[in-house]
């Protein structure tokens, strides 16, 4: 559990982070969103003490971070940045092994851990491992950066716009990787991003920052349903609100058993995990007013347009 208690950072008389109090539960992914210069990176960097708070405290699992030697603290916290910051004179494998080596792991342990991580992130250890960073694509370098951050099995992972430099396809894959890895390892993640869609897709809770303050800290569904301030609503993009909301909910929630529908629907069967947004999109594209959705326990269910439109407006 990460606790920020009245944390502030003042530069030249300006509070770029202003009295922020947040509690992040263990094993959750928290996204920090906000406009450029709102203090997101500064807030993140106060957790691993790359920036020392002007006032306030940061606690990890009840321990004050201020009394732990900074290098020691940082070796227990994964850190990923946008330009990946790989050491250009070391191979990918050696980059990934950085923290385990600092911690004095045995060589064989470092080597097997590096392989394990590279396989988990779909990097071929024998091909990518011996390459230098300048011989990697942007997506590969980014994954090596994530692997390096996870190497010493940190319980906390800080990510500052980790996917900012990736093209949309690779970015979607990197997001999926992060989701999978985070669920599998149970790592607590703080993810700074400019991309509201990314935050909605990945986060358990979203902290919206503006001018150093937290405007709203809530689960994605609540942020969409009840933006606390006009700024939050603006950040969401008002036009997309309903669609964003639908993209959070599984279509199966409003599906009826096939037999109950008057007249069987034809067309393709959507996979069981399809969201309401995907179901609606399918209807618009194929000109139908109902689609079928796979049901692992029996016949495909039916989702109607009316049901979706009703569900898209939170009470």
């Amino acid at each position: 559990m990460i606790e920020l208690r009245s944390v502030s950072k003042v530069y030249d008389g300006v509070a770029v982070v202003d009295d922020v109090t947040l509690t992040l539960e263990r094993g959750t992914l928290t996204a920090v969103v906000g406009t450029s210069g709102s203090g997101k990176s500064t807030l993140l960097r106060m957790v691993n003490r790359l920036v020392e708070p002007t006032s306030g405290q940061v606690l990890i699992d009840g321990a004050y971070t201020a009394v732990i030697a900074a290098p020691e603290l940082r070796r227990k916290i994964g850190y990923v940045i946008q330009d990946h910051g790989l050491f250009p004179h070391w191979t990918a494998a050696r980059n990934i092994g950085t923290v385990p080596v600092l911690l004095g792991w045995r060589r064989a342990d470092v080597r097997s851990r590096v392989r394990e991580l590279m396989e988990m992130l779909q990097l071929d250890p024998d091909v990518i491992g011996p390459r230098f960073p300048h011989e990697l694509s942007g997506g590969q370098a980014q994954r090596v950066g994530v692997a390096r951050a996870l190497a010493a099995r940190p319980e906390l992972l800080l990510m500052d716009e980790p996917f900012g430099a990736l093209d949309p396809v690779i970015r979607a894959q990197a997001q999926a990787d992060l989701h999978r890895v985070q669920r599998r390892l149970g790592t607590t993640v703080i993810l700074v991003t400019h991309d509201m869609a990314e935050a909605i897709r990945l986060a358990d809770r979203i902290a919206v920052m503006r001018a150093g303050r937290i405007e709203q800290f809530a689960p994605p569904a609540d942020i969409i349903a009840k933006p606390a301030t006009p700024f939050v609503a603006e950040l969401l993009g008002e036009g997309d609100r309903a669609f964003r909301y639908l993209s959070l909910k599984p279509a199966a929630d409003v599906a009826r058993p096939d037999g109950a529908a008057e007249g069987a629907a034809d067309g393709p069967v959507l996979p069981g995990h399809a969201t309401m947004a995907e179901a609606l999109s399918e209807m618009i594209w194929t000109g139908r007013d109902r689609v079928r959705i796979a049901n692992p326990d029996g016949d495909p269910g039916i989702v109607t347009r009316e049901a979706l439109i009703r569900a898209g407006r939170p009470e």
Binding site: L50, Y79, I81, Q82, G85, F87, P88, V99
Partner: peptide, 23 residues
């Protein structure tokens, strides 16, 4: 030395000496 590299080195938990000699 690129800023992202020094920042990563600090973020990984290299001490000042380690950063100097290794990076």
């Amino acid at each position: 030395v690129p800023r992202s590299v020094t920042e990563a080195a600090d973020g990984m938990g290299l001490t000042r000496r380690q950063r100097l000699f290794h990076v």
